[in-house]
Design a protein around this nucleic acid. Sequence first.
DNA 1: CGGGGCCTTGAACGTCGTCAAGCGATGTGG
DNA 2: CCACATCGCTTGACGACGTTCAAGGCCCCG
Lengths: 235, 235
Amino acid sequence: MLIDLFLRTHPKPVLSEEEIAALEASFARTQEFAPKQIVVREQVPLTQCTLLLEGFVERYKDMADGRRQILAIHVPGDFVDLHSYPLKKLEHSVAALTPIRVAFMPHPAVRALTETSATLTELLWRSTLIDAAINREWIVSIGARGAAVRLAHLFCEMNVRLQRIGLSDGKQFVFPVTQIDLADATGLTAVHANRMLRQLREDGLVEFRGGHVRIADWDALRRFAGFDTGYLFID
Amino acid sequence: MLIDLFLRTHPKPVLSEEEIAALEASFARTQEFAPKQIVVREQVPLTQCTLLLEGFVERYKDMADGRRQILAIHVPGDFVDLHSYPLKKLEHSVAALTPIRVAFMPHPAVRALTETSATLTELLWRSTLIDAAINREWIVSIGARGAAVRLAHLFCEMNVRLQRIGLSDGKQFVFPVTQIDLADATGLTAVHANRMLRQLREDGLVEFRGGHVRIADWDALRRFAGFDTGYLFID
DNA sequence: CGGGGCCTTGAACGTCGTCAAGCGATGTGG
DNA sequence: CCACATCGCTTGACGACGTTCAAGGCCCCG
């Protein structure tokens, strides 16, 4: 089932058998992408939504001066561009961080789902709004937290999100990004991100190395980051 | 008509007469709030959505250390918490910046709308996603733009959004926030925001004084801010 | 074997934050 | 009606956090 992981991270609202079947039947095909390949390019008219089945992707914006801001990181079970259904195009791009596999749901199929079930509508809508809540938490991180705390908070978020889909055991997980990516996500420079990562490691909180996160002390890390899962809307 | 301003800022998808009537009929009542009054409190279960008819509101999060991050500023015609329909509660609060008047749409009415018209569904969904796009642009601002540019960008955004609803003539508009609010929105301190505002004024770009923005040179301001309206999804 | 991407570290610099003080406007209560 | 408190704005001095520039090491891949 293509939507298993998605449904695992979105247990509410509860769907009927028919609704689950309708959702599953809405996918047209699957496709694979290589790392760094662009999945969705900004401003290009879109006619389908993309569900991430395997691998990691990033949403990002490139700026005129060469800077780059990562807006979100998606994991298996996430729709990476469900918002393209109402918006018809995106104002940012989406690229693969690892080899990925995705499934496509054509916009007409999304519309058909919204016509047949208000519950499915609510579910899909809700998932785009949880993405938005994560966007807002990133605003808080970048706007109001220090550099080390920002990184710690991101590790906390990824740990919780990955644990729900079985990609973290709560203590360690694969997080296939570079320090440059971490810097672009947190609004720091790669140099400073590197220093803060060292500090987090030396303080016995968390270790990031080679695309792998090892949490040394979860409670201490949570406290340090001021991390609260509320914004993830986990039921 | 309560939804006039909303429809003006959301011309697409195009609605039928019946759909417009159904939308209008979905509002239960209106209410007024005084400045600084909290309209929606975080984590409180919600049963209705709030459309802003008059005045300005802010969405914000208060942090444990006393810092405060403003996440969005809403103007008349905006739904301030339409996302409460799928999410059932918010992870942030909403407060009035000025005396405001709002109209409420109960969640069951929203659900009824989604059951009767896929086009209305798309419209409402779309409006929550434009909010999300603005959230993302703020991530870019705070994460990747310098202090003066951030402020300039915010003024550009407000100018465009207010112009659509007749509250800016393109050169000046009322923007009823304090320098502290500007600082909380842009991730700066009030002191530094003050200095940057002075710089923007002395550079002949824009003047902010007493809750009033006067744009001295729109083209120069746009260029300075790197402002592009794409993320506002203006049709 | 050469090149490039990523990580690491040092040193110097600059943007922005902190602390402090003063000003004007507003409002309130004695 | 004035004394006083509060709030928002402004400015200066200083310090910290984060950036920039630079260099070197490691590893993978062509």
